[in-house]
């Protein structure tokens, strides 16, 4: 995992650097009236220093050719799940809970078991209906009504 450690260390260093840069631009205030940048800049600088140590440590050791951390197989499945959830977030308000959730669940069940349309449709309809009844009707969570509302 050493090679992966190196990538990780550089990513963390970049993150720490950006946060430190943004924090130092804030008002630091004084000791008797600490400002909004007081703790963030302290924390971010510490983060930057630690990630620098981490970079040094990870580059000191030789890479030992371990397995790549990238998904070997099923990478497409991962992307499909994340993308469908992202689309769901984008569509939930306008489409409403029932249509958006039904479509999401059909996609997820198809990802789980490709080709089995019937099973996916039935499971999606069931899970959407049951969660709607339990959360919206019983627990009074107000889901976006969207297309079916008004």
């Amino acid at each position: 995992m050493r090679r992966w450690d190196r990538i990780a260390s550089v990513v963390v260093l970049a993150f720490g650097g950006i946060v430190a840069f943004a924090a130092l631009k804030m008002d630091l205030g004084s000791l008797n009236q600490p400002g909004p940048g007081f703790l963030p800049s302290g924390g971010a600088c510490l983060l930057a220093v630690l990630s620098l140590v981490y970079v040094v440590l990870s580059f000191r050791r030789a890479p030992d050719g371990e397995e790549s951390p990238w998904p070997k197989r099923h990478g497409a499945r991962l992307i499909a799940v994340v993308a469908s959830l992202a689309l769901y977030c984008a569509a939930l308000s306008s489409a409403g809970y029932i249509p958006a959730t039904f479509v999401l669940m059909v996609i997820l069940f198809l990802v789980a078991d490709p080709g089995k349309w019937h099973a996916a449709l039935v499971k999606a309809a069931l899970s959407t209906a049951i969660t709607y009844l339990v959360f919206e009707k019983l627990l009074m969570v107000q889901f976006p009504a969207g297309l079916l509302g008004a």
Binding site: T101, L104, L108, F109, D113, S127, F135
Partner: peptide, 18 residues
């Protein structure tokens, strides 16, 4: 798991929303 994971995701979505 192929039935469980879509339900876990739905559970999370509702939890975060509610």
């Amino acid at each position: 798991y192929k039935t469980l994971f879509p339900l876990i995701l739905l559970f999370c979505v509702i939890g975060a929303y509610s």
